[in-house]
Amino acid sequence: MSDKFIMRPEHELMHRPDGSINFNESVYTNGFDATSPVGGWMRLGNRANEGYAELSVCLYLPDGRIACQFQRPTIGSNDGFAAGGLSYTVNEPLRSVSMTYSGDLIIVENPDDLRDPGALFAKGPRLPGLVSWEHIAKSPVHGGEPVDDTVQTMYGRDFSLGHFNQHSRVKGEIRVGEESWTIDGHGWRDHSWGPRYWQAIYFYRLFIANFANGDGLMLLKITDKAGHVRRTGVLLVNGQYEEILDLEVSTDWTDKQDPSFVRLGVLTANRKARIDGEILRLAPLRNRRKTDDGILVSRIAEGFTRFRWGEQVGYGMTEYIERIEDGKLAGFPL
């Protein structure tokens, strides 16, 4: 644990919202089976001062379909994570958490349909769904609460004041309609709190992965509107985190300006690593925020990715977020 952050068991629990209208406390988990290409991610973000939660469930099924749900259920407080059929439980602080969703899932045959979510959510086919998994820690906790105002947080102090994450062993189940799949593999989770607008991020590239031998990665390259670039993250090797010293990202793009393949060069104090990621299925999502100046829109591309690190093959997520300005992606083609 870095001496720049404080991390105590009570940080696993809920935090009192401050006076900012956009205070957000959120939890995120992902999980992928070790032997078959099935898994996904879930997120619940409480915006108690605005009276709603952000609910996201996105599952990547073996036949290429995406099963998902996105809602803004009403909440009246920040007393816990439970809204719209999605719940999160701390079983043992810093060691074990569970997340469960029970409710309808929208079945997406063609991921391009997510580019017009209004039509998809209104007319898309739905099936009853259940996702339930437990995360058991396979790494230390990374991050926490900054020791003072000079410490930069992972995504930036205008996005979350407190943030921690952890690689995990994951066991559970996914059910969609009459079909079901066992999840017995690996995953990653995070927990953050503080003021947040998605549009505070100008653009970033985030990579999360687990490998069969227990190693993993969490890598972030983030750029502000002035062009200042920050690289942060860790490699997980033999159960311990190695903070990165440098990160290079090269992206192959589709004709729709979606990432399709990434080449990562990573430097820590102990090693240099070349890691490649093939994006198997992409969910092209977006977020809108009404402001005094109009509507701000961000593209959030969520890619189920197969990573290769030497002889090791693992699965995880590639996430590209960027503002859309005058119809153009802020970070493309970087």
Score class of each variant (00 low, 15 high):
residue 173 E to M: 13
residue 119 A to N: 10
residue 18 D to P: 05
residue 235 L to I: 15
residue 320 Y to V: 06
residue 21 I to L: 11
residue 201 I to Y: 01
residue 148 D to L: 08
residue 86 L to R: 03
residue 129 G to E: 08
residue 262 V to M: 10
residue 277 G to V: 02
residue 280 L to K: 02
residue 30 N to M: 12
residue 232 T to P: 00
residue 310 G to V: 00
residue 57 V to Y: 04
residue 70 F to Y: 07
residue 129 G to N: 05
residue 111 P to G: 12
residue 257 Q to S: 14
residue 196 R to H: 09
residue 288 R to F: 13
residue 234 V to P: 02
residue 121 F to N: 05
residue 299 R to V: 02
residue 100 T to L: 10
residue 57 V to L: 12
residue 41 W to L: 13
residue 131 V to C: 02
residue 249 V to D: 03
residue 306 R to S: 08
residue 203 F to K: 00
residue 329 L to I: 03
residue 28 Y to Q: 09
residue 106 I to A: 09
residue 22 N to V: 09
residue 65 R to C: 12
residue 28 Y to F: 15
residue 154 M to H: 05
residue 51 G to T: 00
residue 297 V to E: 13
residue 78 N to Q: 02
residue 197 Y to C: 10
residue 293 D to Y: 12
residue 139 S to H: 10
residue 292 D to Q: 13
residue 147 V to G: 08
residue 81 F to W: 15
residue 179 E to M: 15
residue 261 F to D: 11
residue 173 E to P: 00
residue 56 S to A: 14
residue 138 K to W: 01
residue 115 R to E: 06
residue 148 D to N: 15
residue 263 R to K: 12
residue 51 G to H: 03
residue 197 Y to P: 01
residue 29 T to W: 03
residue 207 F to P: 02
residue 35 T to L: 00
residue 166 Q to D: 11
residue 9 P to L: 12
residue 293 D to M: 11
residue 221 K to M: 11
residue 181 W to A: 04
residue 96 S to T: 13
residue 324 I to F: 01
residue 169 R to Y: 10
residue 65 R to S: 07
residue 98 S to C: 06
residue 262 V to L: 09
residue 54 E to Y: 06
residue 45 G to T: 01
residue 95 R to G: 06
residue 123 K to N: 08
residue 80 G to I: 04
residue 217 L to S: 11
residue 94 L to S: 04
residue 254 T to I: 05
residue 130 L to A: 12
residue 82 A to Y: 02
residue 106 I to N: 14
residue 40 G to L: 04
residue 58 C to L: 06
residue 147 V to F: 05
residue 216 G to T: 07
residue 297 V to P: 00
residue 143 G to D: 01
residue 317 M to S: 07
residue 16 R to E: 14
residue 313 V to H: 07
residue 140 P to L: 10
residue 24 N to T: 14
residue 104 D to V: 04
residue 316 G to C: 12
residue 211 F to Y: 15
residue 37 P to N: 01
residue 210 N to C: 15
residue 82 A to K: 03
residue 153 T to S: 10
residue 41 W to D: 06
residue 65 R to W: 09
residue 104 D to L: 07
residue 249 V to Q: 00
residue 227 G to V: 00
residue 130 L to C: 13
residue 96 S to R: 11
residue 131 V to E: 02
residue 333 P to Q: 08
residue 231 R to G: 01
residue 195 P to L: 01
residue 177 G to I: 13
residue 136 I to R: 03
residue 71 Q to A: 13
residue 43 R to T: 06
residue 253 W to F: 03
residue 241 Y to K: 07
residue 198 W to R: 11
residue 299 R to T: 06
residue 73 P to Y: 04
residue 111 P to N: 13
residue 229 V to T: 15
residue 290 K to W: 10
residue 286 R to Y: 11
residue 175 R to E: 05
residue 7 M to S: 08
residue 270 N to L: 09
residue 311 E to A: 14
residue 97 V to I: 00
residue 310 G to Q: 15
residue 145 E to Y: 11
residue 169 R to L: 10
residue 115 R to Y: 03
residue 142 H to T: 01
residue 271 R to I: 03
residue 21 I to F: 11
residue 137 A to R: 05
residue 167 H to A: 14
residue 303 G to C: 04
residue 71 Q to E: 13
residue 132 S to F: 00
residue 328 K to A: 13
